[in-house]
Amino acid sequence: MLLVLHKPYGVLSQFTPEPGSAWRTLADFSLPPNTYALGRLDADSEGLLLLSDEPGLNSRLLDPAAAHPREYWAQVERIPTDAALAQLARGVKIGNYTTQPCMVRRLEPAPAMPPRDPPVRARKSVPDCWLALELTEGKNRQVRRMTAAIGHPTLRLRRMRIGRFELGDLAPGKWRELTASEREAVFG
């Protein structure tokens, strides 16, 4: 079984709570027993999260050799220049690691997103913009660290696609089982 969940903001990608944490967990969503998350999204990130009860799918999906593309939409502070976007696309240094090249583009016009609870910090004197980044790797907080490295901190982050499978109009907090063709779109 392969499921898609539109993970809302403030939810850990695990079923057990962290000691002392106020974040919700996947246990709050009435998912079928014996499922587990394929990969992670940080609690402060939203969007497409796959879950399964099938052993081996995690490594099949996340193995860097498989190079499954993942698309993220990031709302960033200020408007990055073309040179800053080119730097992101080439790869940036985050800590002691240089990211792999990726595809990046401005989303113009900005996508219509439902409001987030709590709302994203907005400053009247500082514009923001949305970027689409397609990665084939997934280091810890990678998109946030990449946009910060070029001077544009991420305000809101949503995973929109894995492979050719898109989140679509699945509402935050809702989940469903993937069809055979959707499964093929994930693993290609």
Results as ranks from 00 to 15, higher is better:
Ser21Phe: 07
Ser21Ala: 11
Ala22Lys: 06
Trp23Gly: 00
Arg24Ser: 08
Thr25Lys: 06
Leu26Gln: 01
Leu26Ser: 01
Ala27Phe: 02
Ala27Arg: 11
Ala27Val: 01
Asp28Thr: 00
Phe29Cys: 08
Phe29Asp: 01
Phe29Thr: 02
Ser30Lys: 15
Leu31His: 01
Pro33Leu: 10
Pro33Ser: 09
Pro33Ile: 14
Pro33Asp: 13
Thr35Asp: 06
Leu38Pro: 00
Leu38Tyr: 07
Leu38Gly: 08
Gly39Ala: 14
Arg40Val: 11
Arg40Glu: 03
Leu41His: 05
Asp42Val: 08
Asp42Trp: 10
Asp42His: 09
Ala43Ile: 10
Asp44Ile: 07
Glu46Gln: 08
Glu46Ser: 06
Leu49Asp: 01
Leu50His: 05
Leu50Ser: 04
Leu51Asp: 07
Asp53Cys: 08
Asp53Ile: 05
Glu54Asp: 15
Glu54His: 12
Glu54Ile: 13
Gly56Ser: 03
Leu57Pro: 01
Asn58Lys: 13
Asn58Gln: 09
Arg60Asp: 10
Arg60Ser: 13
Ala65Val: 14
Ala66Lys: 04
His68Val: 14
His68Phe: 07
Glu71Ile: 13
Glu71Pro: 00
Glu71Asp: 09
Tyr72Gly: 09
Tyr72Gln: 06
Tyr72Met: 06
Tyr72Lys: 02
Trp73Arg: 09
Trp73Leu: 06
Val76Thr: 08
Val76Gln: 09
Arg78Pro: 00
Arg78Glu: 10
Pro80Tyr: 15
Pro80Gly: 13
Asp82Pro: 04
Ala83Cys: 05
Leu85Ala: 05
Leu85Trp: 00
Gln87Ser: 04
Gln87Asp: 07
Leu88Thr: 06
Arg90Pro: 00
Arg90Asp: 07
Arg90Thr: 06
Gly91Cys: 03
Gly91Asn: 07
Gly91Pro: 00
Gly91Asp: 03
Lys93Pro: 00
Ile94Met: 10
Gly95Ser: 09
Thr99Met: 10
Thr99Tyr: 05
Gln100Thr: 14
Pro101Thr: 09
Pro101Gly: 15
Met103Ser: 12
Val104Phe: 02
Arg105Ser: 13
Leu107Met: 15
Leu107Lys: 15
Leu107Phe: 12
Ala110Cys: 03
Ala110Gln: 04
Ala112Asp: 11
Pro115Asn: 03
Pro115Cys: 12
Asp117Phe: 12
Pro118Tyr: 12
Val120Leu: 12
Val120Asp: 06
Arg121Tyr: 01
Arg121Met: 10
Arg121Gln: 07
Arg123Gln: 09
Lys124Thr: 11
Ser125Arg: 06
Pro127Leu: 11
Pro127Glu: 07
Asp128Ile: 03
Asp128Ala: 13
Asp128His: 15
Cys129Ile: 06
Trp130Thr: 04
Trp130Ile: 04
Leu131Ile: 14
Ala132Ser: 09
Leu133Ile: 10
Glu134His: 07
Glu134Lys: 12
Leu135Trp: 10
Leu135Thr: 11
